[in-house]
Nucleic acid binder design. Structure first.
Lengths: 138, 138
DNA sequence: GTACCTGCAAACAATTTGCACTAAG
DNA sequence: CTTAGTGCAAATTGTTTGCAGGTAC
């Protein structure tokens, strides 16, 4: 996992400008274990950054994904979720409460899957759906 | 893979009404190897069925997914794609041309993944992204 | 006959876009 | 100084919803 400073220098490498907004977004994502939506990031940033806009959130997220700092998940069919951990791993989403949980997968499994393709694979996503333990009993 | 007749009886089992529209949708999906979007199904059906509506497409697809006749894929973050093959398997999506290709995965892998969870897993999706062979050379 | 289904149009919601302004380098 | 980034509002688009009329059973 990256730190704020690593994130900033990763962006600088490719000539991207470092703005206060981008630093704020990186800071919010740094080391996070959950999978915030654009809306969630927007709400959180608005506290310290009242004029921030969705345009900035979405474009910065795109940028961070290109630089392999985050992953953009489509595990929820309604909205996008950001995962600050860029390493390949799976995700479980509870269809009742919407909670998203990481699922470890071995690097060798990912490699095997990539190898089997005649295409150039740049990203692998494993999604599982069902009921989480606490929703299952209700 | 199911046939039209099997599809119809699967629906009947649960007391669902068999309408001309539902038969038409089943017919369109039966044995298909691609992954049509709602729009695509709508356009195709409109030829023989000029008054069919999106409401019917979406609600029927939901129904078919519940009856395990199709899978609803979120491999494309813009739209939903229907997969007439309900058996677990992966999907590769070319980020350039948008083409979606099936990826075989072993049943034992799926079982292993399900087993590893403390949640009740009802569906597993494996998505891979990158450039397909023909887009890769351009 | 009745509960469910369809079609239509309007509503919705997440994301994208155009553009004038601002700020990083 | 120049180019890229930001914020705003409007536009876009896939999907959902409410409801009046229709149809399966």
């Amino acid at each position: 996992m990256w730190t704020l400073d690593e994130g900033i220098s990763r962006l600088k490498e490719s000539g991207t400008k470092i703005t206060a907004q981008r630093i704020a977004i990186l800071k919010r994502l740094e080391g996070r274990k959950d999978h915030p939506s654009a809306e969630q990031i927007y709400q959180e940033l608005k506290r310290d950054f009242p004029t921030i806009s969705f345009a900035t959130i979405y474009s910065t997220a795109q940028l961070l994904a290109e630089k392999k700092l985050i992953q953009i998940l489509t595990v929820d069919d309604k909205r996008v979720n950001y995962d600050p951990d860029p390493e390949p791993h799976g995700h479980f989403r509870c269809t009742a409460c919407g909670h998203i949980e990481d699922i470890p997968i071995t690097e060798s499994l990912v490699e095997t899957l990539k190898m089997g393709q005649d295409s150039t694979v740049s990203s692998v996503q494993l999604y599982m759906y069902g009921l989480c333990p606490s929703c299952n009993v209700r």
